[in-house]
Computed example of a mutant assay.
Amino acid sequence: MIIDAHQHLWTAGYAWLQDPALARIRRDYTVADLRAAIRGAGVDRTILVEAGRGDDGETTEFLRIARDTPEIAGVVGWAALTDPALADTIAAHRAGPGGDLLVGIRDQVQAYDDGHLDRADVRAGLAAVAAAGLVNEVVIRAAQLPSLARAAAALPGSTFVLDHLGKPAIAAGALDRWRELITPVAALPNVVAKLSGLVAEADWAAWTPADLAPYVATAVDLFGTGRLMFGSDWPVLEVAGSYTQIKDVLADLLGGVRPDVFGTNAVRTYHLELR
């Protein structure tokens, strides 16, 4: 079974999609669109990740969708890590429709300063997520990787999932600096990383598999294939390619559709009970 550990759904009205550069993906993406995309690529299950709306209603909606969509094996919902009532918010989501499919929490840490994960209230939020038995999913910029290393070291009982390999500046060729920043993160056994979102950091119009290859190879070298997960980042990937193209490129760079990266690591990391 192939599992895509990172996909989204959204409507054209999401605020961040109003950027003119994102016109090609500024439309509604529905479950029907998802099914067409994954079936064409031979993918069986997905993890639905919050899509930047930034409110609890999106998580409630996504859990309901997941309940009614067997292809969606779990939901990483949005919540503010600074919310002192975060534990209650998580409990409320779990008590609602589809609540058993909540597998992680993600705040938009990339929107904050480089030391956001060092704040006491943010650390308390990370601890609340871990205490609920959920994954702390993090979407951050490369410059924020040191703060992730500190947070993960301070909370060894929490599983952290790093989205998009920390968003290396692939188009700018920033391989060496990114490797320096991500190495301490990869040294922590409670961090799992997603091979996702890489084409969005490359030159959308001119990228080639060779542009991604050194970043994928570095991730394998530092994390090992036991702590990496395939994630399409659909439909964001459509700024630069197609679902099947991105999945096949990653498989080629890994020497094939590895059962761990393309499936069992997601099951273990998110404690999935596949339907």
Rank of each mutant, 00 (worst) to 15 (best):
D100L: 10
E180F: 00
G96P: 06
P97R: 05
D118M: 10
V129F: 01
E71M: 03
G104A: 00
G133E: 09
D176N: 09
A91L: 03
I140N: 11
S147E: 07
G96Y: 09
R123N: 04
G96M: 07
A79W: 04
G125S: 10
R141T: 10
G104P: 05
G74C: 09
V109M: 12
A120I: 10
K167S: 02
Q108E: 12
V185T: 07
A66M: 04
L181E: 13
D176T: 15
V109T: 15
A186W: 10
H116K: 13
N190K: 11
L102Q: 02
A91W: 03
V75I: 01
R67C: 05
Q144V: 12
I65H: 08
V192D: 04
V192E: 03
D88Q: 14
G104T: 02
T69S: 11
G98C: 08
R67V: 02
V185Q: 02
A130I: 05
D114Y: 11
A153P: 00
A124D: 14
A149L: 03
W178E: 04
L188I: 05
T69N: 08
L126E: 07
L162M: 07
V109P: 07
A149F: 06
P146W: 05
W78A: 03
V103M: 00
A95L: 13
L155K: 10
I65N: 07
A80C: 11
A153E: 15
L175A: 13
G115A: 13
H164D: 02
R106G: 10
A124F: 06
G173I: 05
A142H: 04
H116L: 12
R150I: 02
A193Q: 06
N190S: 10
P97C: 03
A128N: 06
A142N: 08
D68W: 01
E61N: 09
V129Q: 02
G115T: 14
